[in-house]
Design a protein around this nucleic acid. Structure first.
Lengths: 242, 242
DNA sequence: CGCGCAGTTGATTAGGTTCAAGGGATGTGG
DNA sequence: CCACATCCCTTGAACCTAATCAACTGCGCG
């Protein structure tokens, strides 16, 4: 056993990953040749995080590109009042830490594990060298950053909306698109976040989320299954109500 | 004269710009050699916009990288309620349109001129070719996108803050950092936006901006000079109040 | 000089926060 | 497998802030 919390695959060339997850299934490396991929794999360090554990903090130097191998993480900032404002969520194959990769600037936000999470860390220097040789990777990162800008813009749009119903509905639809499974007419959404988490995404209190969710249930638009599942019964009307 | 609203410098190799503004004073081209710069200049198309005029709309294909030569522009989305939510402002030397450059995707937001504005437009195809030859430009764009992500994150943080005072103060400080001029103890800020513009930045109504601004004046923290200037008298206390 | 837009100010209202208490689910250890 | 503890969620009531609606002011401009 290589320890409980941190498994370093450096010597083995990360055989555990190679042919497995972190690498070919990661979009930004999808274009690499076998031989190049082996080089990358040799640099990867594995690290596991418990639910709720911090990965980096705003202001930290975090000299890695972190790829999510398993689990789910979030980036967030603290509002002036001290509430946690979620900025984004990142699942398998997504990466964070790109900012410090380039300029060596400190982190612009906090990052924590939502669930038990395994990351693949690529040290900054190694990655920069890789980038220079493979401009196609740079291109993919550029694209990813552009879509990230797009997502943040949508979040700004959501938070700019006064109405709490609209914000919550927009979030539900969004989560549905990302995590929903079709169930005949309906869409079953496994929520990655608690009520408080949802609240911290859309800038309201957890009580409001609770109330609005139950209101939507009473209006027959959704069904609440336990605390972590929502069945969207009428996406069309839900969209209209936003 | 080459027309009132659109000046195409293609034939002349954009002599007007060369040695003048759009090019060497634009950060992303700062590393180009004279000869390479001449190539870029030959591709540039000038276009002028009146105050309030749309540059592109959400969903448009806008196959240009647009560099601000003179003036000021904003990107924005419409909230679900129909209010205009400003996403960002871009002044001389800044660029927009990077998203469609790569993937050819439609615009994720609207863009309009805040003041009379002159843009330098570089057609997408030409720019992509340029990027392939100059990975250093790609790198600069990557960096710019990263800072843009950072700004949007801060905006999300601001909008996630419930308190309207805090939001407005945060905006004032931000504008102060960007547009402020030191006046001894004080900081004079030329506002690039109307009250309504400020309101559309921080997701409140123009009435609220007006009230809060006057309250800050009465508390001796700021001085209002006409409608487009604010004198910040005590930045330290202002920060505390946020 | 007067028109029109931008900003201000006031009164009212509505919606969400806050504070407080009760109810369920989940998981752990006996 | 049940009992218990904890965490999370729900629900209620009061409050408060910012939106809304409406009228007024004043500045800039033709």
């Amino acid at each position: 056993m290589a320890g409980k919390k941190s498994i370093n695959c450096q010597e083995s060339g990360c055989l555990k990953c190679h042919g497995g997850f972190c690498g070919q299934r990661v979009p930004i490396f999808s274009g690499l040749k076998e031989s190049d991929y082996a080089k990358v794999a040799g640099l990867i360090v594995h690290k596991d995080y418990d639910k709720g554990e911090m990965i980096f903090r705003e202001g930290d130097l975090f000299p890695y590109l972190a790829i999510v191998r398993t689990g789910l993480i979030k980036t967030f900032k603290y509002t002036i009042e001290g509430r946690e404002q979620i900025l984004g969520m990142f699942g398998e194959g997504d990466f964070v830490g790109e900012i410090n990769l380039l300029s060596g600037k400190p982190c612009s936000a906090n990052c924590a594990a939502i669930n038990k999470t395994g990351l693949c860390l690529i040290p900054r220097d190694s990655f920069q060298a890789l980038l220079k040789q493979h401009s196609d990777i740079m291109f993919l990162i550029l694209e990813e950053l552009a879509t990230r800008v797009g997502r943040l813009e949508s979040l700004v749009q959501q938070l700019g909306t006064q109405n709490a119903d609209s914000r919550l509905i927009a979030l539900l639809i969004q989560l549905g698109e990302r995590y929903g499974k079709d169930q005949g007419e309906n869409l079953l959404v496994e929520l990655p976040l608690s009520r408080e988490g949802l609240a911290n995404y859309i800038g309201v209190t957890r009580e409001t989320v609770s109330r609005k969710l139950n209101q939507l249930k009473e209006d027959g638009l959704i069904e609440l299954i336990g605390n972590r599942k929502v069945l969207i019964k009428n996406l069309v009307i839900l969209r209209e109500r936003a």
